[in-house]
Write a protein that binds this DNA or RNA. Structure first.
Lengths: 141, 141
DNA sequence: GTGTTAAATCGTAATGATTCTTATTCGTGA
DNA sequence: TCACGAATAAGAATCATTACGATTTAACAC
């Protein structure tokens, strides 16, 4: 998935083309890491001086619904990143400082961790947190 | 860990015995599931008409610090449950309706999911979501 | 038991993230 | 170009959480 494919997906579903949507998607495409709403405002607020949180949040959840963005909740904030286009289900190592991610190839749900149970399973979350090389180097100075 | 052991732990660390702390711990002990701050207020608000959120949040994070309670973040809320006393590190199946949990014996971090990487790992989260037998029966009616 | 002191609590205000409302603007297809 | 519905701005409202000053209370020494 790239920006143009994502815009096509929007059009296909009957959503309108706007410069702001394009720029938001371009931002996520450039930075392959988790960003919060305020990060988006910070990045695009210069270009669109009147950009409102409402627009950002509305589009973020739209993109997430259409599976253009992946969503997670960290530190009391919703964070979003461009969907990985690897095709297979997987999880991430996430840098708690800059939001950069690295893929974990396997999903623990594939393993026989959970045998018999009385739960009707609807989802799961597996995330590994830490600091990437750059950020951990900076912190130790 | 039971309520009295938890109160002993508080005393040991120099914290005071209060009826509210005891009742909060008793609540978590009775209900072995995840509860949010508002659930605590709802349960104890009858007995203590002036119970303030400050007291609840302050004690919840104190208990969490002392590892009397386990903490997670779900649906934009902090949720707490009495610490499992099994001794070994493990994860949970969590009912999205009532908060009831069931242990998952193993932790995916023990497995060779993550080999070489450039991250300094500090933590992880593995949770499986769904509906327990009771709640899924009720929903389907 | 009484007094002292620091911790705990109350009541409420402040904060931060997110969502909602209403009026206005803009993209799209006729 | 026009009309229509979708998208947006601005700010108010909401929800969870934290902070603050004043008051109350547990613990301990006497």
């Amino acid at each position: 998935m790239n920006v143009d494919e994502a815009m096509d997906k929007l059009k296909e579903k009957g959503y309108k083309y706007t410069r702001k949507r394009y720029d938001m998607l371009a931002l996520f495409s450039d930075e392959s890491r988790y960003l919060a709403a305020k990060d988006v405002l910070e990045s695009l607020g210069g270009k669109y001086s009147g950009l409102s949180f409402d627009t950002i949040y509305r589009n973020l959840s739209l993109f997430s619904e259409l599976e253009i963005l992946e969503e997670t909740e960290l530190d009391g904030e919703k964070k979003f990143r461009f969907s990985c286009s690897t095709g297979h289900h997987h999880h991430h190592l996430i840098c708690l400082d800059c939001g950069k991610t690295r893929e974990i190839e396997k999903c623990p749900m594939e393993l026989p961790l959970i045998e018999e149970h009385e739960f009707q399973i609807t989802g799961h979350k597996f995330e590994v947190y830490g600091y990437c090389q750059q950020c951990s180097a900076q912190t130790q100075q």
